[in-house]
């Protein structure tokens, strides 16, 4: 049994086969793999006995359930109004410059993906971003590079 199959089976037995457990199961795969591949969607469908189209329908609806390959660390910079006013464009330029990729792209070593996202709820401490589930606020072009440097040093 490959890793993916095991992951799906574990998640399904942890949460249950009922349809209302689909979101936690999909989130569980994201935690491990950062995206939902076609194969994983088919495996979940089979394991839960629901049509693959339904699994895909749910998966493709939510912005945090990526259906395209992502890096190990997904950077989501808030682009909504207050962060936009407080200089999120400069933050993005600094990230792009440091990682040498553009928004929407993943580094060749599959470590980082840069994305933009809608309001993160840190408008009083703008600009803000998420790296996977971690929140970083009151970013400056310097602080964001320091943060990324730490991630780069991680395995």
């Amino acid at each position: 049994m490959d890793f993916q199959e095991k992951l799906v089976q574990n998640l399904v037995s942890k949460y249950g086969r009922d349809r209302e457990n689909l979101l936690p199961i999909l989130q569980g795969v994201i935690d491990q793999e950062r995206y939902l591949s076609e194969e994983v969607i088919l495996k979940i469908a089979k394991e839960m006995s629901i049509p693959a189209a339904h699994v895909y329908g749910t998966a493709s609806f939510y912005s945090f359930l990526d259906i395209e390959p992502r890096g190990k660390y997904v950077i989501r910079v808030c682009k909504t109004i207050t962060c936009a006013m407080k200089g999120k464009n400069q933050i993005i330029l600094a990230i792009e410059d440091f990682l040498k990729i553009k928004v929407g792209e993943t580094t060749i070593d599959k470590k980082f993906t840069i994305l933009q996202t809608n309001c993160l709820g840190w408008c009083h401490k703008a600009p803000a971003m998420l790296i996977n589930d971690e929140v970083y606020t009151e970013l400056t072009t310097e602080s964001v590079v320091d943060i990324l440097r730490e991630y780069k040093a991680k395995e």
Binding site: R19, E20, G57, T58, Y62, S63
Partner: peptide
């Protein structure tokens, strides 16, 4: 129950759909 990044799920009936594993 954790959401997954969809503003519309703050609307109560969309929130319930989401909890039922749907769009």
């Amino acid at each position: 129950f954790l959401g997954s990044g969809a503003y519309i799920c703050g609307e109560e009936s969309a929130l319930i759909e989401s909890m039922e594993g749907k769009r």
